[in-house]
Measured scan of single mutants.
Amino acid sequence: SHFELRVGTITLHFDNISEELAEELEKLAKNGVHADEIRRWWEEWLK
């Protein structure tokens, strides 16, 4: 499923992401983690 995450002024787009993972990314964003860090985390997870 597709997921969009708003982090400050940036909107990150994720394809084929589980609800659980989407929730984890939302938690990171709410805790003030920068969009670049979240994207890096996601790319690492995909490997």
Rank of each mutant, 00 (worst) to 15 (best):
T11L: 07
G32H: 06
G8K: 02
K47H: 13
W42F: 15
K47G: 09
H34A: 13
E44L: 15
A35S: 06
F14Y: 02
E4L: 06
F14V: 02
R40M: 11
V33F: 13
E19D: 11
E44H: 14
H2R: 08
L25G: 00
H13F: 11
F3Q: 00
R39H: 06
E4T: 02
W45K: 09
I38A: 03
F14H: 00
L28I: 05
T11F: 05
E24K: 13
L28C: 04
L12Y: 07
N16R: 04
K30Q: 11
T9H: 12
W42S: 06
R40T: 09
E43V: 14
L46F: 10
E37V: 10
R40F: 07
G8H: 02
G32P: 04
H34P: 14
K30G: 07
R6V: 14
W42D: 00
E24W: 12
E37K: 08
K47W: 12
I10L: 11
T9E: 14
K30S: 13
G32E: 05
E37N: 09
R40V: 06
G8D: 06
T11Q: 02
L28K: 06
L46M: 13
E26T: 15
I17E: 01
S18M: 03
H34Y: 06
E23W: 14
R39V: 15
A22T: 05
V7L: 08
T11N: 03
N16I: 04
S18Q: 04
G32A: 08
L12K: 00
L5S: 00
E19S: 12
W41D: 01
H13K: 09
T9D: 15
L12A: 00
E26A: 14
S18Y: 03
R40Y: 06
K27M: 11
V7D: 02
R40S: 09
E26N: 11
H2L: 02
S18D: 07
N31I: 10
K47S: 12
D36S: 09
L21P: 01
V33H: 11
V7F: 05
H2W: 10
E23K: 14
E19V: 13
G32R: 04
S1A: 08
R6H: 14
S18W: 03
H13M: 09
W45M: 07
I10F: 03
D15L: 11
N16E: 04
S1F: 13
E19W: 14
E19Q: 14
L46H: 09
A29K: 06
W45T: 06
L46Y: 09
L28Q: 08
V33Q: 09
K30M: 12
L46D: 05
A29N: 04
D15R: 09
W42H: 09
A22I: 14
E43Y: 15
A22Y: 10
W42A: 14
I38R: 01
E19R: 12
E19G: 10
S18H: 05
A35P: 13
E24A: 11
K47Q: 13
K47V: 13
E4S: 01
L25R: 00
A35Q: 06
T11A: 03
E37Y: 13
L5R: 00
L12H: 01
G32L: 07
H13A: 06
W42T: 04
F3P: 00
E44T: 13
E20K: 11
L46G: 10
W41L: 11
K30D: 07
F14G: 01
A35Y: 07
V33P: 04
N16W: 07
R40E: 07
L5C: 02
A29H: 03
A35M: 05
G8T: 04
R40P: 02
E24N: 08
E44K: 12
E20V: 08
I17S: 01
F14T: 00
K47E: 08
E26P: 01
G8M: 03
F3K: 02
H34F: 09
R6Y: 03
E24Q: 13
F3I: 02
E24P: 01
E20A: 11
L12R: 00
L21E: 08
E4P: 02
E26W: 14
